[in-house]
Amino acid sequence: MSITILALASGLAGLGTYLILQRLLTRIIIGLGLISHGANLLIFYASASTGESPLIGGDDALADPLPQALVLTAIVITFAVTALLLALALRSYLLTGTDAVEDDREDRRIGGAE
């Protein structure tokens, strides 16, 4: 696998981290999406072999099918949970009028902030 993929994985994880470290849930969702893309690319990068599509029949070397299957599963799971998080963002907005994730009240009370 190429260094491009590794660099991309690393960059996406970093940018995603930047996005999740703030309060708007929409941005957090996008950030988590980027991190997941980064993780998926990293699994893909960890393939044990490179080559043609893993379809039996040809003579060429085949790409490692296992990371592909893993990533495929991961993509779908991430999709499902992203959908759930989107619904949460919507619920949060409908209930409170904002999708910003504020600090926990009870924790702030103990911290003496309220």
Binding site: M1, L6, A7, A9, S10, G11, A13, G14, L15, T17, Y18, L21, Q22, I35, G38, A39, L42, Y45, A46
Partner: peptide, 22 residues
């Protein structure tokens, strides 16, 4: 600064992890 550093740390970790593991 904190956010930037954390992000850079994560990115660096992913890069090193992939490189060394493989």
């Amino acid at each position: 600064i904190g956010r930037i550093l954390t992000s850079v740390a994560v990115a660096g970790f992913v890069f090193v992890a992939g490189l060394v593991a493989v």
